[in-house]
Structure formats: structure tokens, C-alpha cells
């Protein structure tokens, strides 16, 4: 391999660069790429960011290294919190969430950025695969200013024409006013980031569109592993690789356990 970084490290760097200082970043469970991305942005260019991991709100830019919160809400995470909110407080100021940024995964994601954490199979009472459940994604994606869909794998099983069940509304059946028509105040999904590429949503119909290919990945690779016809602009750009400094900070201050650097291609 000629590259000296993994797709997961590239994903984290891409996301980190898209986050702006002062933003409030809400991160859920089991998303190591996102956890690394927000920490990287925090130490690289975001000293005024607020990181909210499951209700523990922290600003830890002063720390040399930022531990990954793999231990729920015990003291190892909560000790860094400036405030801690249970669900009650968490839903108290939904009106301000247009300033917040959220990240979401999915068992399925469809061509309009709707996502499914419920399960797969035509009969809801006998699912072929039962997913973990919607967590708080329906509420968060309704209200936050923008969100990122971040997937660990890029396959036709994950990126589908139409989700079997929708647990978070992206752009519905398409159209720039799809969210407005339902009265959903949030800005919707901005990017879908996978180990192969970055996709965005076309301005007019909000169909998922190839935005940038990761270095070494071809357009045919992506289309072969996508379960719907991807809109493709000409020419297609390439995801800018991480700088030496970004990789150094990522590995020595953020991802100390090597969760991202040890990852394989993840297809």
C-alpha cells in the first residue's frame, strides 16, 4: 500500500476539516471515526468547540491527549464534563439545536439520505436482521443545523435504493423542500462519508451525489458497491489526503489506542 494512512483516518480528517470553531458537536455511541474527528478538529482548529458525548459536555482543548469515551457515563468520561445532562435537560433547548452538529450511522442509508437503525426485512414482526434501534436519531436529525452520515462500510446492502424502515428522515423522497413540507426545522444531512468516498446531496432534488473519491478509489468501484445509481458530477474530485501534521496529531493526541490506524479497508 502506497498510502500511509487508513480510510478511517482519512474519513476522520475530512470530517474534522469541515467542522468550524465554536460549533456544538453531538456524538453518540459506537462511532470511533466521529469521536476521533471531533477531537482532531478540537485540538487542530476548534478551541471553542463544545463536544457533547452522550450528554457529557466538554471543552478539553487544553489537554495534551484526548481520551476516547468508550466507557459509557462512568467517571472516566464524566470527569471531563463541564456539564452533564440527563434526557430531561437534553431536550429542554431543542429550539437552539440549529447551532448544533450531529453524526449518524445506519444499518441502511438510502439515496435521499434517510437512514434505518431499526432492521432489515419486509415483515416488521419477523425481521431478518434486528438493528439496535433509533437511539435519539429521529429527534436530533429533525432539529440540528446539519448532520453527517458516517458509515463503517460501503456496500450495496448498506447504501440502498430505499430503506426498509426509516428511523431518521433525510430528504424523504427527494426535493429541496422535502423537509420544509413536513415542518422539520433542521438542515438535514450534509455529507455521507464512507471508506470509499464522500457523497453530498444535489441542490435541486437532494439525491445522493458523488462529491469526492478517496485516493486510489475509482468511480466504478464506488458505483459497484452502491445499491442505487449515484449522481456523478464531472469531473469528480479527490478527497484531499491528510497532512503530516494532521496524521501526527491524530495518532499521538487523539487515537492513542490505534482504533483508526489499525483498521483495514473496511469494505
Amino acid at each position: 500500500m502506497s498510502q500511509d494512512y487508513t480510510p478511517q483516518e482519512l474519513m476522520a480528517v475530512f470530517i474534522a476539516r469541515d467542522l468550524r470553531d465554536g460549533e456544538v458537536l453531538r456524538v453518540g455511541v459506537a462511532m470511533p471515526v466521529v469521536e476521533a474527528a471531533v477531537r482532531l478538529a478540537h485540538v487542530m482548529h476548534g478551541p471553542n468547540m463544545e463536544l457533547i458525548f452522550l450528554g457529557t459536555r466538554m471543552n478539553v482543548a487544553h489537554l495534551h491527549s484526548l481520551p476516547m469515551p468508550a466507557f459509557g457515563w462512568d467517571r472516566r468520561v464524566v470527569r471531563w464534563a463541564e456539564s452533564y445532562s440527563d434526557t430531561g435537560h437534553r431536550f429542554d433547548r431543542v429550539k437552539d439545536w440549529h447551532r448544533h452538529v450531529f453524526f449518524i450511522g445506519g444499518v441502511q442509508v438510502d439515496r435521499f439520505g434517510n437512514s434505518n437503525l431499526i432492521g432489515i426485512g419486509p415483515d416488521y414482526r419477523r425481521l431478518r436482521f434486528r438493528g439496535p434501534g433509533p437511539v435519539g436519531t429521529a429527534t436530533l436529525t429533525t432539529h440540528v443545523g446539519r448532520y453527517y452520515i458516517v458509515l463503517n462500510s460501503h456496500t450495496p446492502r448498506t447504501l440502498v435504493e430505499c430503506c426498509d424502515y426509516v428511523s431518521a428522515f433525510g430528504w424523504g423522497t427527494g426535493g429541496a423542500d422535502a423537509r420544509q413540507q413536513l415542518g422539520l426545522p433542521g438542515g438535514g444531512p450534509k455529507y455521507c462519508v464512507t471508506p470509499l468516498c464522500v457523497m453530498d446531496f444535489a441542490e435541486d432534488d437532494k439525491h445522493m451525489r458523488l462529491h469526492a473519491l478517496h485516493p486510489g478509489v475509482s468511480q466504478a468501484d464506488v458505483q459497484d458497491r452502491t445499491g442505487f445509481d449515484l449522481t456523478t458530477p464531472e469531473p469528480v474530485s479527490t478527497t484531499p489526503p491528510p497532512t503530516a501534521e494532521e496524521l501526527h496529531v491524530l495518532r499521538t493526541r487523539v487515537d492513542l489506542a490505534g482504533l483508526l490506524s489499525r483498521s483495514t479497508k473496511g469494505e
Binding site: Y124, C163, A168, R179, L182
Partner: peptide, 13 residues
């Protein structure tokens, strides 16, 4: 009332 979930499959299932 709650807004989160409007547009999703939750009311169907």
C-alpha cells in the same frame, strides 16, 4: 406531542 419522528416509519410500525 413530539416532532422528532415525523416523516419516519415509527408511526407505521
Amino acid at each position: 406531542p413530539w416532532r422528532g419522528g415525523v416523516g419516519t416509519s415509527l408511526p407505521q410500525i
